[in-house]
């Protein structure tokens, strides 16, 4: 049926588009880690105390990418 094919097309295209979001989250995570490294190289003595903050920041940056990934998965498998 025409409608079913269009629906499947939309489903998979949407899943692919949503997957871009997780790639964008990768930029954010890289930003966090890179800025941490730049700061850590400027002031290495303060770096150790901030590792926890680094991971929290990475986790928050990643969370939104995970949502995109989840949307992608839902479109692929659950719709």
């Amino acid at each position: 049926m025409e409608l079913e094919a269009a629906s499947a097309l939309g489903q998979f295209a949407g899943a692919g588009l949503a997957a871009i979001g997780s790639g964008l989250a990768a930029i954010g995570v890289g930003n966090v880690a890179g800025n941490f490294l730049a700061g850590a190289l400027r002031n290495p003595s303060a770096a150790n105390a901030q590792t926890a903050t680094l991971f929290i920041g990475i986790a928050f940056a990643e969370a939104l990418g995970i949502f995109a990934f989840l949307v992608s998965l839902l479109l692929m498998f659950a719709v």
Partner: peptide, 13 residues
């Protein structure tokens, strides 16, 4: 939500 999906999503992916 993010707390659980992060873990499951990473491992599943």
């Amino acid at each position: 939500v993010s707390h659980s999906i992060r873990l499951a999503g990473n491992i599943m992916a």
